[in-house]
Write a protein that binds this DNA or RNA. Structure first.
Lengths: 344, 344
DNA sequence: ACAAGAGATGCCAGCGCTGGCATATTTCCA
DNA sequence: TGGAAATATGCCAGCGCTGGCATCTCTTGT
């Protein structure tokens, strides 16, 4: 019997079940109005034939691609894998695949144009955008106009909350600062991120909140500008350690910069945490492997990515989902390790 | 004028140029037999209309998806971003997109089944596989049978070289070991990776090669088993530092484990590199930020990924490309930093 | 028992493009 | 300069699926 080497199609399933293709299609797409008996029979046949709907054909007929896009642009994407697993994990149970688009950061205009071109080229159904791209104010309008569904992981709120998943950075920074204050520190330095990132402001505000709440005065001279890069943390550390009155604690607003401070401290002969407490933000893998291990703040990346994906799929499929109703602000976790200690 | 809100199709281009759709299709697909004048005219019209071929329709008609898949499964994918950029960079100039598939490592069978299911579900045209998945012996046959094109980034040679891109790990490890020998070290320890990885053997063989080439005897007791994880490096370090005769140099076969050794050394009161030289393999970002910075081996991930992508696309498009002719073994680079020094 | 409505199913066109082949046009050599 | 070969172009079916609507089959209430 010359069996034709060809994957089964919806027609094969329909024929075998004695129903029309349309009914099989309904089962595949989870339409409600199919008699349970029919549905079961079709599902069994699908299983038996190992039938898988052809995404190209589905896409062409329904003007959908069943593809989600991930746009990112971070030089040191240490949590990229976690984010990707969060997304693909949720994709898998809903029949979507993830197409990635790392963009070369060369100014807001270019990045947006690049993103739009990606969307059109690939016909993706929806987009998940990571910071810092997600924090560009011009992006949401451009995406709206292009008619793509999207969810941003960002610390912005200029956008309809259905499009947003963010973590409570400000609150976490306030908590961390309170922790330092409770350890007896008063001269606490803060190394901020690049001024054009929203998170920079959020984190700094959290820092201020803690002082405000404790009724303590804040020395503005101890707030230094960094850029989330290792070297900027190192320079800031050097600057702080060469002051006549050195801070007793330094809150670097990300781990990279905290490591820079570590090395500046070592070179200045300052011991962490005996002479100075240091903490960061991100909880990168290496944070627990340094000597001393780094007190930092952990963002639940996997959970955020899953949540974003759920929201996006709900958006695409036009469902008014719980995922889109709830406040998508996920809490962060303080990870207390050995780089912070009571003031001597 | 009620302009219909609809993206231009190949028919619009054809009409505007007074040619048939088939001819436009030829131009899009770079067929050779189109009169230059016609081609130019069509290209201009495509540009003017901002026409982009619909990938679903193309895919359906030509049974292709213009999608490449990336299968990986590494807990600490520090170079993932680099790999992804290498692939997407090359994809972009050839009209492909990249779909990622991180798999949950739960045994070779599961991973292979998972990969095959991914291939069928997503209809990707070709696959790029990263180690350790790429080193599973059962994978290539399964992929061959499934009729997918694929390229492996792996240290294996059980497979037709058209499917392979690898780096000269053994040679690099020999070079690194020679470097240690030239620094006067003789009691050199080696911390290997998990025994089921091919790279583990390659790296260890390189280590042996250097001793052999130098006519030196190798103390087998100084070869310890690790698993590429931080903790295994730490334990191995502890074991080595508690020996009566301590090694004067330790070659950890990846950076993670080298960092483990760093911390074990610190706790044992050994100074790196004064009391003991330490080197690693991978050149992760943090390698230059530790104190001391880590001497290590850099794999040209971006170049390897680009090369793999070129090979894969040549394979898919049936071209007998240069990329598939050349030996796809890329050299590694020794990065000499401060964790290695002459024996005291 | 029957109409009205709700639920289940079927029919067919067409999504946008390319493959295979037929046809038209140009090129080139005897 | 004729005609064969080479090159360029066109025609049409059909890839596998879903949308819209028509049709058929069950409920349910009176």
């Amino acid at each position: 019997m010359a069996e034709i080497e060809r994957l089964p199609t919806i027609a094969d399933v329909a024929r075998a079940c004695g129903v029309s293709m349309r009914t099989v299609s309904r089962v595949i797409n989870g339409a409600r109005n199919v008699k349970p008996a029919t549905r079961v029979k079709i599902e069994q046949e699908i299983e038996r034939l190992k039938f898988r709907p052809n995404p190209q054909a589905r896409g062409l007929a329904a003007s959908r691609s069943y593809l989600l896009g991930l746009v990112y642009d971070m030089p040191n994407a240490l949590y990229l894998d976690t984010i990707q697993r969060g997304i693909t994990g949720t994709c898998r149970s809903s029949g979507y695949e993830l197409v990635i688009h790392p963009c070369e950061s060369t100014g807001s205009d270019t990045v947006i144009a690049d993103t739009l071109s990606f969307v059109r080229r690939s016909n993706i159904d929806g987009l998940i955008v990571l910071p810092p791209v997600s924090e560009m104010a011009a992006l949401p309008p451009a995406l709206d106009e292009a008619g793509v569904d999207y969810v941003l992981l960002a610390s912005v709120d200029l956008v309809d909350p259905v499009h947003l998943v963010r973590s409570a950075e400000r609150l976490a920074c306030e908590d961390m600062t309170r922790h330092l204050i409770e350890l007896g520190h008063r001269d606490i330095a803060f190394i901020s991120g690049p001024s054009d990132y929203r998170s920079t402001r959020e984190r700094l505000e959290g820092f201020r909140d803690a002082f405000r709440a404790a009724g303590l005065a804040l020395n503005e001279e101890l707030i230094l500008k960094g850029d989330y890069g290792y070297h900027s943390g190192y320079s800031a550390g050097n600057a702080l350690f060469s002051r006549r009155q050195k801070p007793t604690a330094i809150f670097a607003s990300n781990d990279e910069m905290a490591f820079g401070v570590f090395n500046a401290a070592a070179e200045a002969g300052m011991s962490v945490p005996n002479d100075v407490s240091v903490c960061g933000f991100d909880d990168v893998v290496f944070a627990e492997r340094t000597l001393p291990s780094l007190t930092t703040i952990r963002r639940p990346s996997l959970a955020m990515a899953s949540l974003a994906t759920e929201k996006l799929i709900a958006l695409i499929e036009g469902r008014d989902d719980v995922a889109n109703r709830m406040q998508a602000v996920v809490p962060l976790e303080l990870i207390l390790r050995n780089s912070t200690a009571a003031r001597r």
